[in-house]
Design a protein around this nucleic acid. Structure first.
Lengths: 159, 159, 159, 159
DNA sequence: CATGAATGAGTTTTCATTCAT
DNA sequence: GATGAATGAAAACTCATTCAT
């Protein structure tokens, strides 16, 4: 695509970037939603979501770089993204949590709006570390310890 | 300080930014370390750390903006920061976790290197949301639900 | 006509514009010539010419805009236009003036090559003012004061 | 002056051009005003004005080119210029005409607002012709026939 | 040493022109 | 021949860096 072409379809370069992120994120969220719906147990839904999140980024490291590093380049872009597409992902997590609470699988006194951010933040940080790391390692293999902490917490309830 | 003055002390603008972040981060980590050492119980150490992290950023929203948005604008800066200063914070958390595991307060099978990232990621996300939000709300009040999830996890162990 | 089509018929955009102006100007000058020839008195010829010039532009404000503003945007176009089509209009005026001098209706010592430019310049300025004006007003009504000055001059010869 | 320098002082390139024209025109008008005031007779005032107008442009052909050709390049520029600086020149002429009418030197029934435009238009056209001409000739020498027509008109009042 | 106006390399944007359909 | 989406050379603009004061 030639330089000038983007100006036929977008007001400016930033608008193009915003559009790319919106498009890609929506597509991914649609995919995640449909995959999650294949499970009936909220616990399995959450697990599958986290697994796929890691797997998608592992498969497309360039995309991961784009999301974890380039997206943040423009404050306007980050803000826009946070308020719309990002919110949709959080809502997907939030719905699973709420369902789990209702079904007695998750704890009753959970604050869903914080829980969904904790889950996203945890996985986001793990992916960013993987992206900036000079070492090559398997991202998906982090699925086990990641879910373990999020689901069971840090404190030894037996102790 | 005038525009041109920075080039007397720094090679370029990015170096200035890196220097500011390093300086500020080290100072903050020193403060956090000294505060954490006032507690003997690893659980209390972790709680105090999270509380102070929220409190510091709440008190200086400009600093929060700087860390959560501006810092991320330069890929080189983010990468550099991630590998040095950010690591120090993670190590502080990691040491507390390890101490807790040894003392039987935290679960034995925790993967410390993931746990510390989960904790940082969770709090980081909560702060970024607060920074980009158009609504004004109390960040420190999120301390309770945040520690609750991280410490106890999502799953209802009674159920 | 689609964008690309003009390059089948014209070398470039400027050539198209030149062609449009040439065509339109020639057509208009032909019309003016034939109208002027309906009068026998050079004074009436000049009056009719000025009246029609105002009337044509009043009737087609878009055309007026084209001539008074758009045409001047390209230096090459202005220069080209000035040397050919514009000259034809001036010659039409010049011929009327010369005829008037010969017939003793206009003053003997008139410098025809300046006179024709004075007449064109005067009417051109009046039309440009009308085009750029934010107020809507009747252009043809300026015919009377315009001819009065050009024919009788400013000085009170009785005084 | 380097490319980027203009953006320190002006919003964009067009604003720079507008500013140059405004500045130069105001300066010239101030000069013309002061020169005109040296005369007491309105007729002499007008003559001196026309003479100086020709002389200034003859002396600075580049400036003449700028005014007669480049100024028209942008419709916005032409419109802005017409409504402000250009108006000031016309007012200067208009004031002289009004004074002349009052003193019985110019004809009573003159329409000042048209007269001033006729005078400007006439001189403007003569200058443009000089600028676009491939022949080099003396512009100031046109002062005589130009004032002759404007002051005495075309019609032979003896005839 | 400090300053901030000026710089110009790099980036973004425009728009006349091309060319596959 | 006609079309209009795509092109890219040129113009406009930005902003980190320099340097005369």
């Amino acid at each position: 695509m030639a330089e000038g072409t983007i100006y036929i379809y977008f007001k400016n370069k930033e608008d193009l970037l915003i559009s790319i992120f919106k498009e890609k994120t929506r597509e991914t969220i649609e995919f995640l939603k449909s995959e999650v719906q294949k499970e009936t147990n909220p616990l399995d839904k959450l697990k599958r979501l986290l697994f796929l999140h890691l797997e998608i980024f592992q498969k497309e490291k360039d995309l991961a770089r784009l999301y974890q590093l380039e997206l943040r380049q423009s404050v306007r872009l980050t803000t826009e993204y946070f308020k719309v597409e990002h919110k949709e992902y959080l809502d997907l997590v939030g719905d699973i949590i709420n369902e789990g609470i209702e079904k007695g699988i998750f704890r009753k006194n959970l604050n869903t709006s914080i829980v969904k951010r904790v889950i996203f933040g945890a996985i986001d940080e793990v992916i960013t570390t993987w992206v900036v790391s000079s070492k090559e390692y398997d991202l998906v293999s982090l699925y086990e310890p990641l879910t373990d902490i999020l689901l069971r917490g840090l404190v030894d309830s037996q102790g």
